[in-house]
Amino acid sequence: METLALKTIVVDIADMAVSKDPGNLLITYSLGSCIGLTIWDPVAGVGGLLHYMLPESTISPDKAQHNPCMFADLGIPLLFKKAYMLGADKKRIVVKVAGAAQLMDAKGIFNIGKRNHLALRKILWRNNVIIEKEDIGGFEGRTMKLEISTGKVTIKTKAGEYEL
C-alpha cells in the first residue's frame, strides 16, 4: 500500500533514471531480452535503474553517442557514474538484475538476452562489482521496480509479483 504515495518514474527501454528522493519509485516495463539493472546505496540513499537493449555500442557508434543507455557497454558505466554524482559509493552499492529472456530458439539466433547478460557480467567483473540477486532467462516478460527509500526491488510477471 505504501507505494501508492510514491512518485513513480517510468524508465523506457534504452533509458535510465537515478534518484536520491526517498519518495521515488523507479519502474521499467516490458523487459524481454533486454536487461533491467538496479543499483542502490543504502547509506547515501541513492538508487538507479537502467533498461538496456543490446550488448555492444560498436555496431552503431553514431547512435550510441546520443543513446548510450541502449547499450550495456556505455549504459552500465553511465548508471554508476550518475549515482556517484549523487553521493553513492561503489563499495556500498547493491546490484540486482532482471530480464534476458529468450524466444524458443534452439539455434540461438535471437540470443540477445544471453549476450546482454554476458556483457553485464564482464563489465561488472572487470570493475569488481558483485551481483547481489538476479532473475534472468526464461520466456517471460518482466516488470522491474526499485523503491529509493528502501532499496526494495520487485519483479512482476504474468503470474504475480515478488521481491528480488
Binding site: I13, L103, F110, T157, K158
Partner: peptide, 13 residues
C-alpha cells in the same frame, strides 16, 4: 518481441 516492445502475457513464448 525479443526487444520487449509491446510484449504482454504471451511474453517470448
Amino acid at each position: 518481441i525479443s526487444l520487449g516492445l509491446g510484449v504482454g502475457i504471451d511474453g517470448l513464448r
